[in-house]
């Protein structure tokens, strides 16, 4: 049994830890809200851009309109953009996304190269000896579109140069505050599904009536790379919300554990203190008894 002084110090240190983790939990909670608001703010643009895209590319006979929309016959190399965090202390957040990516691509029949967003993910991919062609770390806490648009551009460039034949995006979807799920999304070639139902006389007729200025191909040139970059941006914001939520939950658990530990240590300390008082009393009583016997024998 450690001494009373050591136990007091241990209790104090655990209490301090609880205080720190409680503060971190509060910080993460407010950051989750901010990140979610940022995700919401990108929705109008994404919805509109998608409408325009499906509108142009979804027309009959336009499937091979643009290289970024065209599926390649043979996939020889895949690029995966993996979004993770720069920092740890977020429970299994970083490990989950890397494990998820490994499960999907370790068995791939053709080479897979990676773009790492976030330092933790980069380190883990390197440890698993993956080939990383680019990394983006130390993003600002609340990234703007301009901060991350380079990632989308890189993906588009690699795809157009023929270096890779498909591009996937791996990020963590924010389901709710206690549930975050790694997900995989195909970034390029962009798949625009033609909705057969809307192919009525009316829509075909309306399509024909559209004025394109300049021509459709050039409009796609503008909009597809932007849409790709936007998807990356959304994924980063979504992952950020997930990261903060994961950290919040991890910190809440740490706080709970610390509080429980303090309770236990306090109990042990009180017991030890009581025991030592009892021992002291026994000593005194024993001493008095012995003294009384010695006196009476004399």
């Amino acid at each position: 049994m450690s001494s009373a002084r050591e136990m007091r110090m241990r209790i104090r240190s655990v209490k301090n830890i609880a205080q720190v983790t409680r503060a971190l939990e509060a910080v993460s909670a407010s950051k989750v809200r901010k990140a979610m608001a940022a995700v919401q703010a990108t929705r109008p643009y994404a919805t509109k851009a998608w409408q325009v895209l499906t509108h142009i590319a979804g027309q009959p006979g336009k499937e091979t309109l643009h290289p970024l929309l065209t599926r390649r016959a043979e996939v020889r190399k895949t690029l995966v953009v993996v979004i993770s965090g720069d920092r740890g202390l977020a429970g299994a957040y970083n490990a989950n996304i890397i494990r998820f990516v490994s499960q999907h691509f370790d068995t791939s029949p053709h080479p897979v190269v990676y773009v790492a967003v976030g330092r933790k993910g980069r380190d883990m991919l390197l440890r698993r000896r993956k080939q990383i062609i680019a990394e983006f770390s130390n993003l600002p806490a609340a990234p703007s579109f301009a901060d991350v648009s380079a990632i989308g551009r890189l993906a588009v460039d690699e795809f157009l140069r023929g270096e890779v034949d498909e591009v996937w995006l791996a990020y963590t979807d924010f389901v709710n505050i206690v549930k975050q799920e790694p997900v995989l999304k195909k970034l390029l070639p962009l798949e625009v599904h033609r909705d057969e139902r809307v192919e009525t006389y009316e829509t075909v007729h309306l399509h024909a009536a559209y004025i394109y200025e300049p021509e459709e191909r050039q409009i796609l040139d503008e909009i597809v790379p932007r849409f790709t970059a936007l998807q990356v941006y959304q994924a980063i914001l979504e992952s950020l919300a997930s990261e903060h939520a994961a950290r919040m939950v991890a910190m809440r658990n740490a706080t709970d554990n610390a509080v429980e530990l303090v309770g236990y240590l306090q109990l042990m300390y009180n017991k030890a203190r009581q025991q030592s008082i009892t021992n002291d009393l026994l000593d005194i009583a024993g001493g008095a008894e012995a003294l009384a016997q010695a006196m009476s024998q004399r």
Partner: peptide, 11 residues
């Protein structure tokens, strides 16, 4: 662009 403009897509 005035109201009732023909459908148009432009950069």
């Amino acid at each position: 662009i005035l109201p009732d403009h023909a459908p148009l897509l432009t950069t």
